[in-house]
Amino acid sequence: GGVGIPAGAYVIPKSVWLPAMKAKGLEISGTFARRMGTIQMELSLTNKAMQVMTDFAIQFNRNSFGLSPAAALQVHTPLSPNQTIEVTLPLSTVGPVMKMDPLNNLQVAVKNNIDVFYFSCLYPINILFAEDGKMDRQVFLATWKDIPNDNEAQFQVKDCHLNSEAATNKLQSNNVFTIAKRNVEGQDMLYQSMKLTNGIWVLAELRIQPGNPSCTLSLKCRAPEVSQFVFQSYEAMLKN
């Protein structure tokens, strides 16, 4: 964004989730976004068949974080051959829960007048970072101490050419909140928190050394299986 305009949360470019050859001519590409506190599935539907497509509907299988369509798929007019439409589907997180492998896997069924089609996609876990994820400083210190060291995971974010202020701002626009910053022996240590929509808190320490393009991310969480997905989100948020 320009001067005075917040950068906004990072959104991965759309990718093809359902190739036309697997869906009798229906091609679906999409991505996920969190905008103003609402999770959205952003879809492009392309008709590569020789007949008109109508009667679209979408359904999700149970998934790790209860993602579920919060409205019907809004395709109001028939989709003509060679036509593409953009559809935004708002999602809620109060649907049925079932742990998926990988954790961020989502199985989707889309129907139209021709058939029902199935595909899987992966969502970035940062779409689940809640707006109220800034942990009280005292609670952070107590929680950091309380979570066993075995639950700490450490990662290297390579090619991260940001100073700590730029990193703080980028992360904050994705609901990763910096609670404290310290400089020890020339390196900046940022203490950060985020809260997933299901109430799981993640605590982070991000070390940034001037002149070193690699940052060290340490994550502490009572549900350590989420850590690698949080790391993937940090990489995407910091590099974009």
């Binding site: 400083r137 005292q138 210190l141 404290a180 310290r182 020890v184 022996e185 203490y191 340490s218």
Partner: peptide, 20 residues
């Protein structure tokens, strides 16, 4: 701002993480 001891606690945490 009130010094609630937390500033010092974060300094100790950062220090202990750098020099365990």
């Amino acid at each position: 701002e009130l010094d609630d001891g937390l500033d010092e606690a974060f300094s100790r945490l950062a220090e202990s993480r750098t020099n365990p």
